[in-house]
Design a protein around this nucleic acid. Structure first.
Length: 963
DNA sequence: TAAGACCGCATTTTT
DNA sequence: TGCGGTCTTA
């Protein structure tokens, strides 16, 4: 498409180069066009050189695109702009540190230096490993923080916190906190109280309790608090009470936090030191040191400032990036461009308030930075606001739909903070508007999507705009299917492959968790040692039943055909050749297979890895779920499948928004994080330790449980995600759901039609899955003979159904169709891939038997019941065994929870007594030991189990309680 | 209207 | 583990 002439608003943006600007640039409004023209206009002036203008972007690809577009429309060539500061924040920070950063750490009191050899650590897995290593040493050196180690389940939680603090501009110094960092850690009581009061208003004219009180109806459920916590009824007041006492706000906010702050401070500053000594910087530390340097070193700042600063995709910037941008501005010529409705990277610390509260933040940040020195030129900034309103991408109907989407509640009870008033209305200038917006629904959602696509292709009802501006019937390549999750995308690809359907995946793939990778791993294991775990997978895949495989593994006699294939593989010299043969055998072709081959080949080439090392590499990849980028091959007429995040910035004539099913992202929360930071409440600890007693124990923090319920629920980002998806569409939007459409789909003005999927298989002449018809005699005859594989759920569904229908299933009451099937499946797959698992039913025990014996620790979730005679009556204690350690002659249950103790987990003695008896029952032939296991530091302490008499007493009292 | 029991479900990805 | 939603009971 040729570049249009700018409209009036674009012209204003292009020509108004002096002073601060906030540009609201909605989707399809020609933002890149205007920004690159603006840049060109600035640098084309005789007194301005490219090095006077910073154009900061969020991603490398955006930077590259900007550069290319500028080259097209300015007097500068690509070569002249090669070193121009058109880059990401991170690479610019790197640049600054390279040039002036040598002594940057000294401003925090650190003696270490940043040198030319300091590396940027890009791989987050490697960083996590380094941090674990660091944290281990830190624990040894700092016993004074022992109380906090006990509250952590993984060091990664601390690293997350450090990165979050860094993204906010909260840094440590060797003897305290940088600038006003500490005040942020303390939080702001007034701000908190406001939220508390808002959540604590009775509703329905005082007839209904406040939201906060209602939320706290689960107070203490599945929790163990210390004795000083108020009881649920004390906290909430008796029945009929409508709100919490005002004093609760104060009670929960003010809490001893010095120890916590000291702990976080020490880890933070020591990790900075560790990284510098190891000569590396993480992405967040890059920004941290650049910020400190620009703040403290006037000469460096003067050298680093620009006459013009333009920030693209401003809605994706973090707080510290906003401040960095200010420090880099030598003048007030500061222009930010973005669209708050497309801010979907909060997990990346993007802070949507940077753009929503731009004016206020600009003033506040500038004032903060100028508090003790004259650092930034913004005196009383009065930014001009420019709104790009003309949409060049979509029809009016699509724009209308997107504007509905941004104000649609994400769930029942979700209140939308923003109204349509906050949305800059866009107008379309599409040539025609024949937009179809529809919803389809069928249980087999993948098939439904594919048949819909088939219906659309070549159909004039879904005509799209051709090159000449005239309508033409759509092709596969015009259609994109968006999903929230990679998993869904992968499932869709699998189904599409069955029909030979032209689809291409675009984005990150958990490469080593794909079927081709699993099969390749199996064959490598076979080549290495004829490993049972390899053969089991291969034979499963080839269609053998458990008994047949059992027989083969026991006797070590494998079917002829795969044995020959193995020998054939042995002849091959390179791992790459092996991989290619294996993938060929199963008919794997296409993007994923290509990337797998490429990845493995490059590992092998670069490190001359042995086969064993390659196996470990894949195993590690499976464990960590590391992803590799797969790009859709351009030029193919194929449907693009991608996550919404990947699709940002792209456009397609037709968008299918898939997986509009019940179940949303949980609102952003600390997850399993124990120590967290939230703006109004500062640094908080979610778990606390008991300080007294022989058995230090970690409890939940009741204060935190109240506080978190006062904070607003964050569904906004989901709405924005939907907005991004819809606004990718030029002409048509199709929503697709499986069983239950979600609230979004229900609330939008979209008719959802129940359709009958009917995908017509295409034959594009590519190899399909190879059938391998060979048989082996099994001793007891096959359980079943349907083709199945460890990767194929349907087999286990069948197995489950058969079992349910069969005569001998009474012994396993929890056996239920799909549920059962997927459990066996998960088990078999996990086991085959090397996870430790303990069988919980006959099927699983069989799998283990046939996949060879296993010793060591196993996670199980086995419900157990222990019948005991109490006062002549037979009662049952029930619970869940969680973690077992088995060796040849000894067995030990490490973690057991009774149903009662699931609610109050401190009742160690009761637990131990119960599992002591359970173990005897389970493993009559092995010596049974009991031990106490603290997750925090891995130590085990023996405890005397209760006698059966004491146990009876416990049961009696438990019964009395429940009466 | 409130409280309790129970069930099902647990991300996205860039530097 | 930990929560939100829904269904059941008070």
């Amino acid at each position: 498409m040729s570049e249009p002439t700018p409209n009036d608003v674009q012209r204003e943006l292009i020509e108004s180069t002096e002073g601060p600007y906030l540009v609201d640039a909605g989707p399809g409004t020609g933002k890149t066009f205007a920004v690159t023209r603006r840049y060109g206009r600035i640098v084309d002036r005789p007194d301005v050189e490219p090095e006077d203008v910073l154009l900061a972007t969020f991603t490398r690809s955006a930077a590259t695109e900007m550069k290319e577009r500028i080259v097209d429309h300015s007097g500068y060539g690509l070569r002249e702009l090669a070193d121009a500061p058109i880059r990401t924040f991170h690479s610019h920070c790197h640049e600054i540190l390279q040039e002036h950063g040598y002594a940057a750490p000294t401003h925090l009191g650190l003696d270490e230096r940043i040198t030319g050899s300091t590396r940027i650590l890009e791989d987050e897995l490697i960083e996590a490993e380094r941090f674990r290593e660091f944290f281990g040493g830190f624990r040894d050196d700092h016993p004074e923080h022992a109380d906090f180690y006990r509250a952590l389940s993984a060091p990664g939680e601390v690293l997350d916190l450090i990165e979050e603090l860094a993204s906010k501009g909260i840094f440590p110094t060797t003897d305290g906190w940088y600038r006003d960092g500490e005040s942020h850690l303390d939080g702001d009581f007034e701000a908190f109280q406001e939220r508390f009061d808002a959540a604590n208003q009775p509703r329905n004219d005082g007839r209904k309790q406040s939201e906060l009180r209602e939320d706290l109806s689960g107070f203490g459920r599945d929790k163990a608090y210390r004795a000083d916590a108020p009881s649920k009824s004390t906290l909430r007041g008796g029945r009929g009470t409508k709100r919490l006492d005002d004093d609760v706000a104060r009670q929960v906010f003010y809490e001893e936090r010095d120890g916590l702050k000291a702990f976080v401070h020490d880890v933070y500053v020591e990790y900075l030191r560790f990284a510098l000594r190891r000569n590396y910087l993480s992405f967040s530390f890059l920004q941290l040191f650049a910020f400190v340097l620009l703040c403290e070193d006037e000469r460096a700042r003067e050298a680093a400032t620009f006459e013009y600063v333009i920030v693209d995709e401003f809605q994706d910037t973090s707080e510290v990036q906003f401040k960095l941008a200010l420090l880099l501005s030598g003048t007030e010529n500061f222009c930010v461009v973005g669209d708050w409705k497309q801010s979907i990277y909060s997990f990346q610390y993007a802070d949507v308030d940077n753009i929503l509260e731009f004016e206020a933040r600009l003033e506040r940040f500038a004032a903060d930075l100028n508090a003790d020195a004259d650092r930034v030129p913004f005196d009383s900034p009065d930014p001009t606001r420019i709104e790009l309103r003309e949409n060049y991408r979509s029809t009016e109907s699509v724009i209308d739909l997107s504007e509905r989407a941004i104000v649609t509640p994400a769930s029942s009870g979700d209140t939308v903070g923003t109204g349509l008033d906050d949305v800059v209305a866009l107008s379309s200038n599409a040539a025609f508007d024949n937009t179809v917006v529809e919803g389809i629904r069928h249980e087999d959602e993948h098939e439904a999507v594919l048949s819909k696509v088939q219906e659309i292709v070549g159909n004039d009802d879904y005509a799209v705009e051709g090159e000449d501006g005239e309508p033409r019937p759509p092709e596969y390549g015009d259609i994109a299917v968006f999903t929230r999750t990679r998993d869904y995308g992968r499932e869709l690809l699998d189904v599409a492959a069955e029909y030979d359907f032209p689809v291409a995946y675009d984005g990150g793939v958990e490469l080593f968790r794909t079927d081709p990778a699993k099969l390749l791993l199996a064959w490598l294991r076979i080549l290495e040692s004829d490993a049972d775990r390899g053969w089991a997978v291969v034979l499963e895949r080839a269609g053998y039943a458990f008994d047949e495989i059992d027989h083969a593994l026991e006797t070590g006699t494998y079917p002829t055909e795969p044995t020959e294939f193995r020998d054939e593989l042995r002849e091959l010299e390179s791992v790459g050749a092996v991989a290619r043969r294996v993938l060929d055998r199963y008919g794997y072709a296409g993007d994923v297979a290509d990337v797998l081959l490429h990845t493995l080949q490059s590992v092998h080439d670069s490190t001359t890895a042995t086969r064993g090392e390659l196996i470990r590499h894949i195993e590690r990849g499976v464990e960590t779920g590391s992803t590799v980028d797969v790009r859709a091959t351009a030029g193919d007429d194929a449907v693009t499948v991608q996550t919404i995040h990947t699709a940002k910035g792209l456009e397609y004539p037709i968008v299918v928004m898939a997986n509009m099913n019940e179940g949303r992202f949980p609102p952003r929360s600390g997850g399993s994080s124990v120590i967290g930071y939230r703006d109004p409440v500062g640094l908080r600890q979610r778990k606390i330790y008991s300080e007294e007693g022989a058995h230090p124990h970690v409890y939940d923090n009741w204060r935190h449980d109240v506080i978190r319920r006062c904070l607003p629920r964050e569904y906004d980002e989901e709405r924005r995600l939907l907005y991004v998806a819809v606004t990718r569409a030029e002409s048509h939007v199709v929503f697709a759901a499986g069983e239950d459409p979600n609230t979004f789909l229900e609330e939008l003005p979209v008719a959802v039609e129940e359709i009958e999927p009917d995908v017509e298989p295409l034959d594009r002449g590519e190899p399909g899955d190879a059938e391998l018809p060979f048989a082996v005699t099994a001793p007891d005859g096959p359980i079943g003979h349907s083709p199945h594989s460890l990767m194929d759920e349907s087999v286990f569904e069948e197995a489950g159904e058969r079992r349910e229908a069969g005569p001998d299933h009474e012994s396993e009451p929890e056996t239920r169709g799909m549920d059962f099937g997927s459990r066996v499946h998960d088990f078999a797959e996990a086991y085959a891939l090397g996870d430790d698992e303990t069988p919980s039913n006959d099927h699983e025990r069989r799998i283990v038997e046939l996949l060879d014996g296993l010793s060591g620790e196993k996670h199980v979730e086995e419900p157990v019941t222990l019948p005991i005679d109490v006062d002549g009556r037979r009662v049952t204690v029930s619970g869940i065994v969680d973690l077992v350690h088995v060796t040849a002659d000894r067995v030990e249950v490490i973690d057991y929870k009774t149903d009662a103790t699931r609610r109050a987990q401190s009742e160690y003695k009761k637990q131990l007594s119960v599992y002591y008896h359970v173990l005897d029952e389970w493993f009559p032939e092995k010596a049974v030991e009991t031990s106490l296991f603290y997750t925090s530091d891995g130590t085990r302490e023996p405890i005397e189990p209760h006698s059966i008499e004491e146990l009876r007493a416990l049961v009696r009292s438990a019964e009395a309680e429940s009466d």
